[in-house]
Design a protein around this nucleic acid. Structure first.
Lengths: 192, 192
DNA sequence: TGTACATCAGTGAACGCGCGTTCACTGATGTAC
DNA sequence: TGTACATCAGTGAACGCGCGTTCACTGATGTAC
C-alpha cells in the first residue's frame, strides 16, 4: 500500500546505501536487485518505483559512495598542516582496515576494474568519483602547476593500485608488505 | 566423434587462449562458457571434456596469461642496461596501446578487482601472477635489500593503478594525463 | 475541518532469457590381439 | 600388417536456477472540494 513521502524517501535512501555496501564488497555484476531489496526486507517489484533500471542505480550509487567517502576523508584532522594531513590520508587509505572493509571504503578502488564493462552512465559517474578523489589529494598536496597536478595523479594511482593489489592477493604477508611499501614510498615522495 | 590427440590438445589450447582474451577484455563474470566455445565454432557440451568447471578454466587462464605476458615483457631489449630496460617496461605498460587492448595485456591489471570475488584457485593463480609481475620489475630494478623490494612493490602498484584508472576513465584527456604522469613519476623515482 | 476519490509504494507471481552443468548419442581414433 | 573393439571429443537437447523487468492488485496516503 501507499507510503508517506518521508517513508518513500527513506526507502530510496536505504536502497542506495545497501546497494552501495553490496556493490563495493561483492561487485556490481554479483549483486542482484533481489539481493538488495531482500536485505531491506522488501520484494523486487518495489525497486522499480524508485529506479528505472539496475544501471540507473549503479550510476547513482557510485556518486553517493564517492561523495560519502571523500567528504569523510576531507574532514580528517582539519586544522593540521598539509603534510600532516597527507600522511593521515595515505595511512588511512592503505590501512589493513580499509583493505579488509571494501563495503565501507573508496568506491574508486572497489569498482575500478568493473567500470570499463558497465553502462556509459556508470563510467561517467566513476570519472567524477575519480575527480573527487583527486580533489581530496589536492587538499593535501596543493599546488597550481603541471608538476603538482602530475604528482597528485601519481599519488592517486599508487593509492588505488596498492589497495587493489593488497585486496587481490591471497598471501597475507605479500598483502601487508604491499600496503607498507606503498605507504612508505608515497610519504617519501612527499618529503614527510 | 573422437579426435586425434593433437587435435584434442589444440582444442584445449584454443579454449585457454580464447578465454584468456575474452576474460581480459570483458571480465570473468561477463563471459560465459558458451561464449568461449561459440567463438571457436564449438558447442558448450564439449567444454567439460577439457575442464572440470568454469572456475578451473579461470585459474588456468590466469596462469597462462600471466606467463605469456611476463615472458613477452622479459624479452624486451635483452642486451640493454637495467635503467634503459626499466624505461622500456614503464613506457610499454603505461602506453595508450596497452590501455586500449586489455585482451592482449597484463592479466593482473585487467582482473585485479574481480579476483577478490572469485574461487580460491583463481585467487592463488592471481597471487602467482602478481609475483611474476614483481619478478619482471626485479629484472629491471634489481637489488637484494628491503629498500629495493619496497621500491619494486611500489612500482608494481603504480603501474597497475595507473593503467586501471586510465582504462576506467571516460574522459580521454584525464586518461592520457594519468598515463603520462605515472610514467614520468616512476621514471623519476628510478633516476632515469 | 470532513469527506470522497485519485495516487502510488510495495506485493507476489509471472515473463523471457541466459547461465553452468549433465547426458545419451555419434563416429573417428587408438589399441589389443 | 590387419582386424575387432574400446575409447572418448564433440553434439545438441535438456536440467534447475537466478537474472532484470513487468504487471495486476492492495490499501494507506495525499488532495480536491
Amino acid at each position: 500500500m501507499r507510503r508517506s513521502r518521508e517513508d518513500t524517501a527513506q526507502t530510496r535512501k536505504k536502497i542506495v546505501e545497501t546497494a552501495s555496501r553490496l556493490f563495493r564488497s561483492r561487485g556490481v555484476a554479483r549483486v542482484s536487485v533481489a539481493d538488495i531489496m531482500g536485505a531491506l526486507g522488501l520484494t523486487v517489484g518495489g525497486f522499480y518505483r524508485h529506479f528505472a533500471s539496475k544501471d540507473a542505480l549503479v550510476a547513482e550509487v557510485i556518486e553517493a559512495a564517492s561523495i560519502a567517502s571523500t567528504s569523510r576523508q576531507a574532514q580528517t584532522a582539519p586544522g593540521a598542516a598539509a603534510k600532516r594531513r597527507a600522511a593521515a590520508l595515505v595511512e588511512t587509505y592503505l590501512s589493513p582496515l580499509h583493505r579488509d572493509h571494501p563495503e565501507a571504503g573508496c568506491p574508486v578502488a572497489s569498482l575500478c576494474a568493473e567500470i570499463p564493462h558497465e553502462a556509459p552512465a556508470a563510467k561517467e559517474a566513476f570519472t567524477k568519483a575519480l575527480q573527487r578523489l583527486l580533489a581530496v589529494v589536492a587538499e593535501v598536496v596543493p599546488g597550481e602547476g603541471a608538476e603538482s597536478r602530475a604528482e597528485r595523479l601519481f599519488i592517486a594511482a599508487s593509492l588505488v593500485g596498492g589497495l587493489v593489489l593488497s585486496r587481490a592477493t591471497s598471501d597475507p604477508k605479500l598483502s601487508s608488505e604491499l600496503l607498507r611499501a606503498v605507504r612508505a614510498r608515497i610519504l617519501g615522495t612527499l618529503g614527510t
